[in-house]
Amino acid sequence: MEKRYEITEKQLVFLEDFLLRKYPGISNETKIELIDHLVSDFEATTENGNLSQYLSNELEFIARFVFKGVSLMKKTYRKETWEQFFKFFTEPKLLLISISTLLFFYFLNETVTDKIVYLVTIILSTLIFGYSVFKGMIKNKELKNLDEVKFLGNEIWLPFTLVQLLGITNLCYSIMKYCWLYTLVALFIIIYGLSALMVILKHKKIILEKYKHLLN
């Protein structure tokens, strides 16, 4: 790539400070890509090396770039979790897990007391939640502030919260009167939890690979 000018260390620090001052919540990944683009363009097009002048012409692009990143990240995790969820009903190996879960809750509901059925649901969902936190959390100081790390565990909260809500509102005992209805609710809680767990583990691997330079 042809360069007319080489940005100085001082200008680079100025650019980073400018972005952090204007957009304090900017994610690391967005910042990396935005700075690289602005610097590459500035170095290739500047006539006089005046960074402030260049930035004043790019304000609109910078604003659009920053705001699109976060919503896309959340949408991606949700979309992938739902896709994984539907795979539990279409892929033969995963379908076996879904059928086993369905039958397990159905017969549990038929044979033991409501309290035990709810207790089993809460234990299983807590185990999935706990395993997700334990295995999926990225604890590295350098990475934990990235948007993709912050929002990674978002979806696992849905089944966990749902099962707590069912208990707090006593709704679970009303639903349990209809065996199949509770079986379906429990199936959703377990399968959505497993889907979220699978997405978390997949993305943890991707994130660690992507940012391996920061960890070395």
């Binding site: 260390e9 680079l12 990944e29 990396i32 890509e33 700075i35 690289d36 610097v39 690979e209 992507k210 940012y211 330079h213 920061l214």
Partner: peptide, 12 residues
């Protein structure tokens, strides 16, 4: 995506 250090900055 892969992030790598290029000169004095990071690149995606």
């Amino acid at each position: 995506v892969e992030v790598a250090k290029v000169g004095n900055r990071l690149r995606k």
